[in-house]
Design a protein around this nucleic acid. Structure first.
Lengths: 187, 187
DNA sequence: CTGTTTATTAAACATCGTGTTGAAAATTAA
DNA sequence: TTAATTTTCAACACGATGTTTAATAAACAG
C-alpha cells in the first residue's frame, strides 16, 4: 500500500509535532495557536515544520485524515472477519473506536471542531445504510435528503453529548439508541 | 430598556465595520481575516476598531448576539399578537426570519460557522417545546436528553441543507418537515 | 448658535509571528 | 565507512498587532 521507507527522523518529527499540537488544542482554539508555539513545545526547529506542513490548518487536516483512515481500517477489519455484520454492530464499533481514542475524538468532534469533518465520520456508516431509507417508495427523494441531513447531524449531536458526559453509557447502548432514533423515520 | 443615547458616530462606525467584516466572511474564514483588512474596507482607523472590539472574534460574537436578540424579538412580537400560537407556526417564523436574513444566516449557520452558536438559535424554539417530550413517563430523563441532542443538531442539519439548496422549499413546508421529524420520537 | 464633550484620526512605536534562505551539523540507510 | 537525507541554526525582510499621543472633527446640551 504505502512505501514503508519512512526515515525515522521524519517519523519522530511528525509524531512530536502532532502531540504538541493536540496538547495545545486542548487549551485553545486552532486559530490562536502559533506555529512557533507548536515547535517550541515539540522542541523542533520551525524550519522543519515548514518542511512538512504549510500551517496549523494543514497539520489539522492531516491529523483528521489519519483518524478517518484509522476508523475505516478498524471497520474494514471487522466486516472482513465477521460476515454477518448487523448495522447495530457497525455503529457499536464506531463508538468503541471513539471511546478508545477519546482524547483526540473529543477535540475533533467537539463543538469547537469543524462540522464538515464530523459529517465525514458519520458518512462512513450512513453510506452503507442510506439505501434502506429510500427503498420504501413512500418518501420522495427530496424528503429523503432532508431526513438524511437530519439524522446525520442528529447523530453528531448524540456523539458530542456522549463524549461530554464522559462516555458513561456503553458503546452498545449508544449504538442501539442511535439506531432507534434513526430507524423510526421510516414509519 | 437600553439608554438610547448612542452617538451617531459610534453607530456609523459599528455599522460599516460589521458590513466590511461580513463581506470578508463571504470570501474567507474568520481566522484569516485581519483587523487591518476590516478597517481598510470600512475606511475606519484601526485605533477606532480597538476602541470598540478586541479582535475579529469579539466582533463576531457581537454580531451573533445581535442576531439572536433579533430572532427573539421577532418571535416575541408574534406570540404577543397571536395568542393561539401553534408550534408549527413558531418554527415557520424562524424559517421566515432566516430567509429574510439569508446572507448573514448562511454565514453563521453554515458548516463553517460555530456549532455552539447554532445550538443557541435552536434552543429558542426547543425551550418552549421540550417539556412535551418528557411528559410521557415512558422515557427516562437520560434518554430524553439524548433525544433532545439528536433533534437539536438534526434540525441544524436540515436548516443548513435548506440554506445550501437556496431555500427552495417554503418556510411552512420546512416547519412541517421539522415538526414531523421531531414529533415521531414520542411514539 | 455656542461652548463643551466625545469620538475619530494620523502617526509613530515596539513587539511578535511569518515564511524563506543557505550553510553547517547530525542522523540515517546502504 | 560513505553517501544521502534530514534537521538545525542564524539571519532576514515583511506584515499584522496593540498601544499611545496630540490633533482634528463631529455630536450634543443648553
Amino acid at each position: 500500500m504505502r512505501s514503508k521507507k519512512v526515515d525515522r527522523r521524519v517519523k519522530y518529527t511528525k509524531m512530536v509535532l502532532k502531540n504538541s499540537f493536540i496538547k495545545l488544542l486542548e487549551k485553545k482554539d486552532i486559530s490562536q495557536i502559533t506555529i512557533k508555539e507548536i515547535c517550541e513545545n515539540a522542541d523542533i526547529n520551525r524550519a522543519t515544520f515548514y518542511a512538512h506542513y504549510n500551517n496549523q490548518y494543514d497539520l489539522m487536516e492531516k491529523i483528521q485524515n489519519e483518524l478517518l483512515e484509522n476508523i475505516e481500517r478498524y471497520l474494514a477489519d471487522y466486516t472482513a472477519n465477521e460476515l454477518d455484520a448487523v448495522p447495530v454492530d457497525t455503529v457499536e464499533r464506531i463508538f468503541e473506536y471513539i471511546q478508545e481514542n477519546a482524547q483526540l475524538c473529543k477535540l475533533l468532534l467537539s463543538e469547537r471542531g469543524d462540522i464538515s469533518f464530523q459529517k465525514r465520520v458519520l458518512m462512513l456508516v450512513y453510506e452503507k445504510n442510506i439505501n434502506e431509507l429510500t427503498r420504501n417508495g413512500t418518501i420522495t427523494k427530496e424528503d429523503a435528503e432532508y431526513i438524511h441531513a437530519f439524522m446525520l447531524t442528529g447523530c453528531i449531536g448524540v456523539i458530542q453529548k456522549w463524549l461530554n458526559d464522559g462516555m458513561a453509557k456503553s458503546p452498545r447502548h449508544m449504538a442501539k439508541t442511535i439506531i432507534e432514533l434513526s430507524k423510526i423515520e421510516n414509519s
